[in-house]
Design a protein around this nucleic acid. Structure first.
Length: 868
RNA sequence: GGGCGAAUAGCUCAGCUUGGUCAGAGCGCCUGCCUUACACGCAGGAUGUCGGGGGUUCGAAUCCCUCUUCGCCCACCA
């Protein structure tokens, strides 16, 4: 324990070791409040649900940012005495994980169909077990103090129980239904996607104007962005009030290429302003067309295969063509037939698969849906009544808007990896019973006939939206559930506000009767210097583990916390880690060295001060510098605490940084050196004060920089490697410490010193030259200046008692005579710098002149008005 | 098409809710220092008409209007 501390702080030597000790001591594990065990009134627990990362994911800066923020909040509240539960888990992430394994299979020249469903799922399980949620271990490297003893996986059997329970309950309530709708289909993943999973992206495209020959002669021109879908047209629609087409309604056109007659219908969904005001209707490939088709009883003709090739319902020459290939061929043929009137550039939004970026195909298919409106109402009410708040606030309106316009949630996915839909169909002809069941069925509950389970699995979010209670044991009434639901804060990136956060609120309201948290803190996105989102595909990512390796976890955490204000993005330069993370590293090193200095100077006698105060007044043993640093410390406690409470983590970081570096290191430690060295009496008090203040600083900083603060804190007198700063109480604010007089007087001294220093700098005299007993090469009057400065630095600790009073009433601490005969006084009344004074007076004069001028102007205007 | 946010030193950003004492931080740059905790440091210094224009006010980075440029979210204009 007594090994000397290296002058260079080396995080790699302490971080892993400290983390292991924290885990071994069980310091991350939340204990359930045990009423009646005499532990006194337990504070209410503080609970954060970690957004479960994908099991197969690799740590990126987004995780780093997200989890650092959560860890800061958790550590803060834990020190404040609340039983803090940060509950981690991993998500099975249906599409993403299945894609990963399919890619591995592809390298072996196989597809999932070669293995078959059962073997494929087993293969994915093997993969997941093998990679072993490495992401969670990576979170440990950045210091995450999550309760690993409660880690869940969204495909665990206990989670499956919750999923089935929810599915069956909603089904029985009539909130889950199966239907034929246009859904977003990913032709590459071969599965349906929810609206949220189909990311809209503006893209330059074209608008083709195509002539559809009227059966009674002439043409009707329709505009389309996707000509290939015309092969599946079953009507043309116009607006009912559109005079141009009124008499055509009810007549037929001949669909080119497919050579089929199709009707012209009138529908209010058509915008007469757009294109030609006539729209081709393809009910199987467009949501609006689907609605029109339904209103008019039109057939839906699906012309594509699941992987978006033209199927057998199109003329033979198009069959098997990829949709974009088919588009080219269709356009070419139309052109040859003279049916292409014109083409114009057109910018429009296309949906892309959020996982593989493939352009989604709106496709008619039978899927399972959740009726969302009844679920959304209580979730919206929770926001409106203030039971749920957002930081930043404006996100609340986004949430409300989404809730108000909510659409049903397509929950079936044509994948194999996931929670299989707990629905069984009776295979006995004539029965056809459909049963949703909590238990696996082997026979139809209606007729006893053979049953077949639905082939599809549930959207991965169907398990994640239950996490706030399923991870605590729901549907059982477990002690954990009773103790830790509802939680407090949800910290996440805005991207998954609708995917996850909104749905968790809905599930919480529906199944637990209240939202799972009261605050949603949405932080920004990590971007590069060109404000592009960091991503693997762009190659502009920063590997947090590399940062940890080079600068330490504390430096990483400091950077992301200090670098981001509420509601803004975090910009980092992937090409210049030094610039981004050196401040954190430098700060850690500064703190380390301050600690080294303090610890190595505690050998001497320490006067244990039971309190710095006697009868509410500062003890007379405290010098001005002591009282000042205690007051600054008090201010830091208040500012940091308030900033943490308000999620202003950057403000907390800045306040603590400034206190430690500018106040404690730059001034106080310098000021007490003469006392510590024994040049001046009072060393024992200085030791007591500096220990106390340093202890507080470490505790304030601990949530942000847990490792270095722990390493230093354990070395303070009376502590051991077994004690942990994690269990140290949060510093309490003490109003007696505010001491405005000490602040004011010490600040005057600081000003005095700077004034003297700048005078010295201006005349180019180096401090080293002062050593020769006032003999300086510069103009001789300045030797007073040197003497004063050095004396001042040495004696900061002693000047609390009144200095001698000059003839004119000033209590001078230092005096400087300029070569022009003018003087700079430095006194406890005020540090007067002649230049500052002049500029102040000048500014005052300017202000008065401006005031007079504007008053005159006003007067003139009034006179003018009066005259007029 | 709607809604929202941002524009402050070379770079990354605070400050704006509650107008004056706020023009700031870190990095970078310049000068001088290896002063017995720290050169990942110390002490000084330069740099901004707070995006443009207008308004309210005795006074605006801060409030209002407008323009410009970026960015985000929502939306079934084929």
């Amino acid at each position: 324990m007594t090994e000397p501390l290296a002058p260079q702080y080396d995080p790699s030597r302490i971080e892993a070791d400290l983390y292991r000790r924290w885990v071994e001591a069980g310091l991350f594990e939340a204990r359930r409040p045990r009423p009646g065990r005499g532990r006194g009134r337990a504070a209410s627990p503080y609970v954060i649900m970690m957004p479960p990362p994908n099991v197969t994911s690799v740590l990126h800066m987004g995780h780093g940012l997200n989890n650092t923020i959560q860890d800061v909040l958790i550590r803060f509240e834990r020190m404040r005495g609340r039983e803090a539960l940060w509950l981690p888990g991993t998500d099975h992430a249906g599409i993403a994980t299945q894609n990963v394994v399919e890619r591995i299979l592809a390298r072996e020249g196989k597809t999932r169909f070669d293995l078959g469903r059962e073997a494929f799922v087993e293969r994915v399980w093997a993969f997941v077990r093998e990679t072993g949620a490495a992401i969670l271990d990576q979170l440990k490297a950045i210091g995450a103090s999550a309760d690993w003893s409660r880690t869940y996986f969204t495909l665990d059997p206990r989670m499956s129980r919750a999923v089935r329970e929810v599915f069956v309950r909603l089904y029985e309530k009539g909130l889950i239904y199966r239907g034929n709708y246009i859904i977003n289909w990913c032709p590459r993943c071969l599965t349906a996607l929810s609206n949220e999973e189909a990311e809209k992206e503006e893209q330059d495209g074209r608008l083709w104007h195509v002539r559809y020959p009227l059966e009674r002669g002439g043409h009707l021109v329709v505009a389309t962005t996707r000509p290939e879908t015309m092969l599946g047209d079953t009507a043309v629609a116009v607006h009912p009030d559109d005079a141009r087409y009124r008499e055509l309604v009810g007549t037929m056109v001949r669909l080119p290429l497919a050579e089929r007659p199709i009707p012209i219908v009138a529908d209010p969904g058509v915008d007469p302003e757009f294109g030609t005001g006539a729209v081709k209707v393809t009910p199987a490939h467009d949501p609006l067309d689907f609605e029109i088709g339904r209103r008019h009883g039109l057939p839906a003709l699906d012309v594509m295969t699941p992987d978006a090739r033209m199927n057998d319902d199109v003329p033979e020459r198009f069959r098997g063509l990829d949709r974009f290939e088919a588009r080219k061929r269709v356009v070419e043929e139309l052109e040859r037939l003279g049916l292409l009137e014109r083409v114009e550039a057109h910018r429009h939004a296309v949906g892309r698969c959020y996982r593989c970026d493939t352009v989604v195909e709106p496709r008619l298919s039978e899927q399972w849906f959740v009726r969302m409106k009844p679920l959304a109402e209580p979730a919206l009410a929770a926001y409106r009544t203030g039971k749920l708040r957002f930081i930043p606030e404006r996100r609340g309106e986004e949430y409300a808007q989404w809730m108000e316009n909510i659409r049903d949630w397509c929950i079936s996915r044509q994948l194999w990896w996931g929670h299989r839909i707990p629905v069984w169909y009776c295979e006995r002809p004539g029965c056809g019973k459909v049963t949703a069941s909590r238990e696996d069925l082997t026979a139809c509950p209606g007729c006893g006939g053979p049953v077949r389970q639905d082939e599809d699995v549930l959207d991965t979010w169907f398990s994640s939206w239950l996490v706030p209670f399923s991870s605590l044991g729901w549907p059982d009434r477990t002690p954990d559930l009773a103790a830790f639901y509802p939680g407090d804060v949800l910290v996440t990136a805005p991207e998954i506000l609708f995917f996850w956060v909104a749905r968790m609120v809905m599930a919480g309201c529906e199944f637990m009767g209240e939202p799972p948290f009261h605050t949603v803190y949405l932080h920004g996105t990590v971007r590069d210097t060109q404000h592009r989102k960091m991503s693997k595909s762009l190659g502009n990512g920063i590997d947090p583990l590399e940062v940890v390796g080079r600068y330490g976890a504390d430096a990483l955490r400091y950077t992301v916390v200090a670098g981001m204000a509420v509601g803004t993005d975090l910009i980092l330069d992937p090409k210049d880690l030094e610039t981004s993370f050196a401040p954190g590293r430098n700060f850690a090193n500064k703190l380390w060295n301050a600690g080294r200095f303090i610890l190595s100077n505690l050998d001497g006698p320490v006067r244990p001060l039971p309190s710095f105060y006697r009868d509410g007044r500062p003890s007379p043993e405290l010098t001005l510098a002591d009282r000042w640093i205690i007051a600054r410390c008090e201010r830091a406690v208040v500012e940091a605490t308030e900033a943490y409470e308000r999620f202003r983590l950057n403000e907390a970081a800045n306040a603590i940084y400034h206190f430690i570096w500018s106040d404690l290191a730059d001034w106080y430690i310098e000021a007490i050196k003469p006392r510590l060295y024994g040049d001046v009496p009072g060393g024992e008090v200085a030791r007591a004060v500096v220990t106390q203040v340093f202890d507080v600083a470490l505790r304030l900083l601990h949530p942000i920089m847990p490792f270095i603060t722990e390493a230093l804190w354990q070395r303070l007198p009376g502590r051991s490697a077994r004690s942990s700063i994690m269990r140290a109480p949060w510093p309490r604010s003490d109003r007696r410490a505010e001491d405005p007089a000490a602040l004011r007087e010490f600040e005057l001294l600081q000003e005095a010193v700077s004034a003297i220093r700048s005078i010295r700098a201006e005349y180019g005299v180096a401090p080293g030259q002062q050593v020769e007993a006032g003999v300086t090469p510069g103009p001789s009057p300045f030797r007073h200046v040197f003497a004063a400065e050095w004396e001042l630095l040495r004696r900061l600790a002693k000047v609390a008692s009144p200095a001698p009073v000059d003839g004119d009433g000033r209590r001078s601490v230092a005096t400087a005579v300029l070569s022009d005969g003018s003087e700079v006084f430095v006194s406890l009344e005020g540090a007067i710098d002649i230049r500052r004074e002049c500029s102040r007076l000048n500014a005052e004069r300017q202000r008065l002149l401006a005031l007079i001028e504007s008053q005159e102007k006003k007067l003139r205007n009034e006179q003018f008005v009066t005259r007029a």
